[in-house]
Simulated scan of single mutants.
Amino acid sequence: MNDGRADFDFIFGRWLVRNRKLREVTDPDCTEWVEFDAHAQAEPIFGGLGHVDRIWTESPPGEEPFEGFTLRQFDPQRQVWRIWWASSRRPGHLDPPVEGAWHDGRGVFDCADVLGGLPVRVRFEWTTDGADSARWQQSFSYDEGQTWRTNWIMDLSRVTGAAPAEVPR
């Protein structure tokens, strides 16, 4: 079935993640970028209609180590993905899901949120070569989507010898 449910299958397995992010992603005036490495691992759930993805790092410059958790679920009726994010930096909080789909090798997912007391549109964008590398980036818009400011980029490289997990269907 080619309805979009397999669009994230590339993510299964273990990854080294090179992060480049604004030090304060929720500050629209921040201009200081930091870079650090992290590790991630993703596996399918719900027969491939969902994914669980963990990321962890011990070395963000000038920051505490953290762990993040992503839940992705595919809605077969609407043919869209919803992506939720949580982090050890904000215990007990699950961000509202971004929603979207893949078209022409690019996944775009967005939602409305409030960050730092300001209304904001959040956008996740994914691209991949389908096997051993992928890129995720996050952008915010403080003007209802007229302009976007990228604040976090992750370049993922598959860990050698770590084959993607099989999707139970």
Rank of each mutant, 00 (worst) to 15 (best):
G92M: 08
P60R: 09
I55E: 15
G62L: 09
I55R: 13
W56V: 11
G48C: 05
W81C: 06
E58L: 15
L49F: 06
P91M: 12
A86G: 04
D95T: 05
G92I: 02
G50Q: 08
V80G: 01
V52S: 12
R90P: 03
F46R: 12
E58A: 15
E67W: 13
Q77F: 01
F46E: 07
R72K: 15
H93I: 15
P76N: 02
W85M: 02
G62R: 09
E58F: 12
F46D: 14
F66Q: 13
P76R: 06
F74A: 13
R90M: 12
V52M: 14
D75S: 13
G48Y: 05
R82Q: 07
L49Q: 04
L49C: 04
G68Y: 02
P76E: 03
W85P: 04
F74N: 13
R78Y: 00
P65V: 04
S59V: 11
P60H: 06
R54H: 14
W81S: 06
H51V: 15
T57L: 13
R89T: 11
I55W: 15
D53G: 00
P91D: 11
G92V: 09
G48T: 07
P65Q: 07
G68N: 13
T57K: 14
W84Q: 01
R82W: 01
P91L: 13
Q73R: 08
L71K: 02
G92D: 04
P65I: 05
V80E: 09
W85G: 01
F46L: 15
S88E: 11
S59W: 09
E58Q: 11
F74M: 08
